[in-house]
Amino acid sequence: MTAEQQHNPFRPPDDSVAAAPSQPPSGYGAPPPSSPTPPHVQPPAGPPPGQAPGYGAQPGYGHPQSAYGAPPVPGAQPGYGAPPGYGHPQPMPGWGGAPGWPQGPVGPRNGLGTAGLVLGIIAAVLSCTFVLSPVALILGILALVFGLVGAGRARRGQATNRVAALGGLWTGAGATLVAAVLTVVLFVWASQPIEVESEAGSAYLAEALDEVAYADGVTVVIGSPQVSPDGAAVTVTAQLANDSDTDADLLEGGLTGYADGEELPGDAVELEGMELGTVPPGDGGTVVYTVAVPAGTEELGIDFSPGSGYEDSYWVFTLSGGPAEEDPTGPSEEDPGGELPGDEPPSADV
C-alpha cells in the first residue's frame, strides 16, 4: 500500500506495520500525544458510504489501561481511564468516628454525684421533722439513686468526685430509713379518728342532755327522742358546737340505731336536716334524724359521730317503760328535761 492509497478503517493494518499497543490515556485532562501521527498511519478521511457520520468504530476502546499515570504511547487514541482522585476516602477523626467533625475534650461527669450529696443533706435535715417526713423520704430515695450512679462513674474513671457521690449515697440511705418510719407513723396518726374525751359517751352510755366532748373541742348534746303517734318512728335531734380554736369539719356525720339491743338496718335511719359543714370556732348547728323502730320498742341505742373524722359516741334512750324510768339520775315529773325544744343545752353554745 502506497502513501497515496486511502487506509481502510475496517481492515487491520498489515503485518509489516508495527502495531502500536492501544493504551488509553492516564485520565481526564491527559495531554495529547507529543509525537505526530506516523506517516504510514493515516486517519480515515470520512465515513464509508451508507454510514452516518460519527458512528464508526471509535478509537480508544481497546484494552483497559494497565496502570494509572503511565506515559501515553505514541499513536494511541485518547480513551476513558479511571478519573484521578477517586480512591477510598480516608476517615477523619471526629465524634464517634464520623468524618469531618473534630474531637472535643470530654470533662468529668460529676453532676449526679454532687446532686446526690446535696439531696442527701436536705433529706437528712427534713427527716428529723414529723410532718415533712414524706418529703424527706422522696429526697432520700433520689439521693440514694444519684449517689449510686455517681459512684459507678467514679469507679469507671468518668467522674472525679467519688467522695461526694459516696456521701450522697450514705446520707440518702440513712434519711430514707428514718423518713420511712416517720412517714408510716404520720399516716397512722392522721388516719386515727378524733377520740371522745368525756366519760359520757365512751366510759359509759350517755343519756339525754349529757354533753359528749371530743378531743378537738367539739361537743354533742342529744335530747330525748320524740316518738311518732303510731310508735313506728323516732326523731333524734343533736346539737353540735365547736368550742375549739380551729375549724371543725362536721359535714359527714353518721348515726346507727339499735332497737332493744338489735341493730337496725341502714335504711331505717334518714337524715332530715343538717345545716353544718366547716364550723368555725364558737359556732355550731343542729342535726335531725328520723329512726324507724319496730312497734313496742322500749330502748333506743345510738352510735353517733359528728363527722367522718370523729369517733362514735354511745347513747341510750328509754322510749316507754323500762328500768330507765327508775334511774334516779333520769328525768322526773318535776323536771321533764330530756328534750331540746330550742332551749340552750348545758355547756353547749349553740
Rank of each mutant, 00 (worst) to 15 (best):
I122L: 11
V106A: 11
V125M: 11
L137E: 11
L144P: 07
F130A: 01
R156Y: 06
A154P: 08
V106K: 06
Q158K: 07
A123P: 12
L139Q: 13
A159Q: 00
I121N: 11
T129G: 06
I122M: 05
G140I: 08
V135Q: 07
G116C: 07
A124I: 00
A143R: 13
L139D: 14
V106R: 13
V106G: 03
R156S: 08
P105A: 12
G152N: 05
T129E: 11
G150Q: 03
I122A: 15
V149W: 08
G111A: 05
R156N: 06
T114V: 10
G111D: 15
V125T: 09
G150C: 06
G147W: 04
G147Q: 01
A124Q: 13
C128M: 14
A136T: 01
G150A: 10
L117V: 06
V135D: 13
I138L: 13
G113R: 04
S133D: 04
G113S: 08
L142M: 11
G157W: 02
V118I: 14
R156D: 08
P105C: 13
A136L: 10
T129F: 05
A159D: 10
L139C: 10
A115F: 05
V118E: 09
G157V: 06
L148H: 06
P105N: 08
T129V: 04
S133H: 00
R109S: 14
R155G: 03
V125W: 14
G157C: 10
F146C: 08
A151K: 03
V135P: 14
V149H: 01
L119T: 09
L126I: 02
L126G: 07
Q158C: 02
A115E: 09
G107D: 12
P134G: 07
F130R: 12
G113C: 05
R156I: 00
Q158L: 12
G111N: 11
I141H: 05
V131Y: 10
I121M: 08
L132E: 13
G113Q: 05
A124S: 15
G116Q: 01
I122Y: 15
L144D: 09
G113F: 09
V145R: 10
Q158I: 12
G113V: 03
L112V: 01
G152K: 02
A124M: 07
V106F: 14
G120M: 01
V131T: 15
G111L: 12
Q158M: 12
A115I: 06
L139R: 09
C128T: 15
V149C: 00
A154K: 04
L112S: 09
A124W: 02
P105I: 07
G113D: 02
Q158D: 15
L119S: 04
G157Q: 08
G147Y: 03
L144V: 05
V131D: 13
F130W: 09
R155L: 11
